[in-house]
Amino acid sequence: MKTIIKQFRVLRALIVRELMMRYGREGGGFAWVVIEPMLLCVGVTTVWMLLKPGYERGVVVAALVFTGYMPLTLWRHLTNPAVHMLRRNRHLFYHRSISTLDLFWSRQILEFTATTAAFLIVYVALRGLGLVEPIYNWSLCLMAWLIMAYIAGAASLIMAVVTENFEWSERIVQPFQYLVVPLSGVFFVVDWLPQGAQNIIWFNPLIHSYEMMRAGFIGPGLTTHWTWWYPILFSSILVFFGTAGITRARKRLIF
Rank of each mutant, 00 (worst) to 15 (best):
F30E: 03
P81D: 00
I4E: 12
V173F: 13
E170R: 11
L193E: 13
P134A: 03
L103A: 02
L64W: 13
V44P: 03
L78N: 00
S97E: 14
T73K: 11
L39Y: 14
E133I: 10
R9E: 05
T46K: 06
N89E: 13
I121L: 15
G185W: 04
L50P: 04
Q195V: 08
I5N: 05
L206S: 01
E18Q: 13
I158S: 13
Y230W: 14
G153M: 04
T46H: 01
M38W: 14
T45Q: 06
E26I: 11
A62H: 04
W226Q: 06
T115L: 04
R90F: 12
P194V: 07
F104Y: 15
L39G: 08
A155Y: 04
S139G: 08
L222K: 06
I5D: 08
L140W: 05
V162G: 01
L146N: 00
E211C: 11
S169C: 10
L183Y: 12
L179N: 09
Q177R: 13
W32H: 04
F176D: 01
G153Q: 02
L72I: 15
Y69C: 00
I147L: 14
E26K: 11
W105G: 02
A197L: 14
E211K: 09
I98D: 08
W226V: 00
S209D: 14
S169H: 04
F203V: 13
R76L: 15
G54M: 02
L103H: 02
L50E: 02
I158G: 05
R250I: 07
